[in-house]
Design a protein around this nucleic acid. Structure first.
Lengths: 241, 241
DNA sequence: TGTATTTTATTTGTCGACAAGAAATATATT
DNA sequence: AATATATTTCTTGTCGACAAATAAAATACA
């Protein structure tokens, strides 16, 4: 809430983005807000309102929305308002399947193609994650976790996997935020250990080991999301959002 | 060339798209032309020119270009012209890898999740492909092949795989068009047979068989592209486009 | 003659305005 | 009173224009 008004102030104030950066500003800000659920799934996104809020005309807003639609973060209803993409839990099995496959494939490729510099960068994120766990900062954990795996995918160097995986990780970030309920003290430590093994396998260029750990890690995360959802559905009779 | 002037005439004539269909018209037409290499990889795409050609303002053209950029079919250089995405053959190994994986995954899922109606639709494309082979119509073969595999992916019902696979198939369509040189009479028949086995495995819900054939099919296609490229590089010293 | 600098021109990024569609509201008709 | 029709309101899709940024051309300078 405080951060919210602060950033709004920064936008309203003279910090107008230079020519050519208007679209990026709107896109990045909205993306962040959608992933952090500041903008609720299913809620309408009004161009005119955003235009006023960002202090720019509707054109760059529109172009940002098109990009968000391509990312699957927003749905455009023709001649009607666009809405923040709903969290469709009928599609969850597909999501689990794709997420698991991408975890495995990107980690395998990272073990194959990583450079030493990339290992260093991956370890940096691992350290950040450890910090977040120590501080019990769940938001930060979710975000750093995304960067950690994205970095691994980058070390794998397959453009197609990187893109799909980033998208899946973002979707996962939204799911975790939405369904996150009780904080379990054990899980973060499990993830931390699994991440450590994963980095070691990548560093050792042990492809099969990397694959095995990635699968294990993916299953763990899927189980976590599923248990959150199971808890959640008991509360809201499963129709919400 | 004839089809070209015909469609241009249709555009220039009174066939103005209704409100809300302008973007789609430009997007579909441009996408088709890029995939068919009517627009050469690396060639500049001028908004003003397209605006005149399609008889609409630059706004819808711009929005269509943003979508094409998201598909990876066009590259936008900031404050400079956009160009048709070059065929980067340094990225080919990544492409082969992703294509093979998607062939396997989508075919597996199709064997798992197909409905009877979907089998019928897949067989329809298989028949179309056979027709194109009989007529030795290479363009049609390339296009129907894409639809055939896309339909299989749809029967698998995983949104994430469908999107990535469609993109890869489009990219492959462009590659085949670009590098296609000598027509080999045997290959189409090989593909036809492999397709037939693939459909049978899907119909029988034999997941492992589907996987095996998909892998075989993917390898076959990768080999074909590679041999075309090997031929091609001898001719133009490998720097072209 | 070749390089640096200014000028011109082209093309993009952004803007404000307007009209078409859809939803919401009000009116008419049975 | 209930349904059908007309009106109003609101949001989007599209347009033409302008200004910033870059590339190209022209000029100055060594």
């Amino acid at each position: 809430m405080e951060a919210d008004s602060k950033s709004n102030a920064a936008e309203a104030a003279g910090a107008k983005p230079r020519r050519g950066h208007g679209v990026a500003t709107a896109y990045d800000t909205l993306k962040q807000e959608i992933l952090e659920l500041k903008l609720r799934p299913g809620s309408p996104v009004d161009e005119t309102e955003l235009s006023a809020r960002f202090g720019m005309s509707r054109t760059p807003i529109r172009e940002a929305l098109i990009k968000l639609a391509n990312d699957g973060l927003v749905v455009t209803l023709p001649n009607r308002s666009t809405i923040v993409a709903p969290l469709d839990f009928l599609e969850l099995p597909s999501f689990y399947d794709a997420l698991t496959l991408m975890y495995r494939v990107t980690t395998r490729l990272a073990a194959q193609n990583r450079t030493d510099a990339e290992v260093v960068r991956i370890r940096k994120f691992q350290a950040d994650y450890a910090e977040a766990v120590a501080a019990k900062d769940v938001s930060r954990m979710i975000e750093v976790n995304r960067h950690f795996h994205s970095m691994i995918a980058r070390a794998g160097k397959n453009r197609y996997y990187i893109e799909l995986f980033d998208r899946l990780l973002d979707e996962g970030r939204r799911l975790l935020r939405f369904y996150y309920s009780s904080f379990n003290d054990e899980l973060p430590q499990v993830y931390l250990d699994e991440h450590e093994k994963m980095v070691c396998a990548i560093e050792a260029r042990d492809v099969e080991m990397a694959d095995r750990i990635a699968k294990q890690h993916a299953d763990q995360i899927v189980r976590q999301i599923q248990s959150y959802i199971a808890d959640d559905r008991r509360l809201n009779s499963g129709i919400a959002f």
